[in-house]
């Protein structure tokens, strides 16, 4: 299946490897950052909601 690249095989393969490698790195870094901020945001929001509902509960309990 591999096409005959002739004497320039190393060059062509290196170009593709470099490009795809850098693209993969960019994609992985972006996805990892995305996941990290998403979980961090969810945690903060959940703790806020928990706090808010706790305050609400105590307020109604007192009333």
């Amino acid at each position: 299946m591999m096409p005959d690249l002739g004497k320039y095989a190393a060059d062509v393969l290196a170009a593709y490897a470099v490009s795809l490698g850098l693209i993969a790195v960019l994609l992985i870094v972006s996805l990892r950052q995305s996941r990290k901020t998403r979980t961090a945001l969810r945690q903060v929001e959940e703790s806020r909601q928990a706090k808010a509902s706790a305050q609400q509960g105590s307020a109604t309990g007192n009333g």
Binding site: L26, L27, S30, L31, Q33, S34, T37, L41, V44
Partner: peptide, 23 residues
């Protein structure tokens, strides 16, 4: 695709920063 992913990350990061600051 990357712009969407990364911008979503940045928006979330801003939201996170704002929440922490408010806390």
């Amino acid at each position: 695709l990357l712009i969407l992913i990364r911008t979503r990350t940045e928006v979330r990061a801003r939201r996170l920063q704002a929440l922490i600051a408010r806390e």
